[in-house]
Amino acid sequence: MEVDKGKGEAEETRKVAEADRDTVTLKSSDGKLFEVSKEAAARLSTVLAGMIAGGSIDDNGTDLKQIGSEALENVVDYCNKHANSIPSAALISSSISFNTAPFKEPEEWERKFVDRLSHDALFDLVEAANFLGMERLLDVTCHKISEMMKGKSPDQIREVFNIKNDYTKEELEEIRQELAWAFYDD
């Protein structure tokens, strides 16, 4: 964050003007600017909420050096879509019951939102959501990753994500025995 030293008064005026706006401007690592509803940003991102509350939002574009323009566009897109969607039920249920995750399943539009992403765009978005403290977006993107793993063999998972197999043949055999219950071999 750039700080204008010695221009206290101008800074104050700018901050007041900033507080009056109902959008915030975010700047990606490659210098592109995006506008997002202040209300949605504060509600969906703990980091942005903190910055808005702390007055550290820059009118000319708050620098988010860790986030590329493509990912930031998706973040902003998600915030705007989220602001316009009507939540179908309470996000967190009051009592835990068996097999009820603390988060509800992705909504139809959230599913579509992550389904259209390329492999790299999905991971960029996961990282951005994590950086910005966007719990719901993290939940939706991680749900998508889990769907990509579901019902797949270790080999298939490695292939989908390009994961290097760092086991030796002996180690693999050992794990195979340990996890025999998961493989219906008999």
Partner: peptide
């Protein structure tokens, strides 16, 4: 559980 077990086989 079965998917988690399979994931454990992917890498260390």
């Amino acid at each position: 559980p079965c998917d988690i077990a399979l994931a454990a086989v992917v890498s260390k």
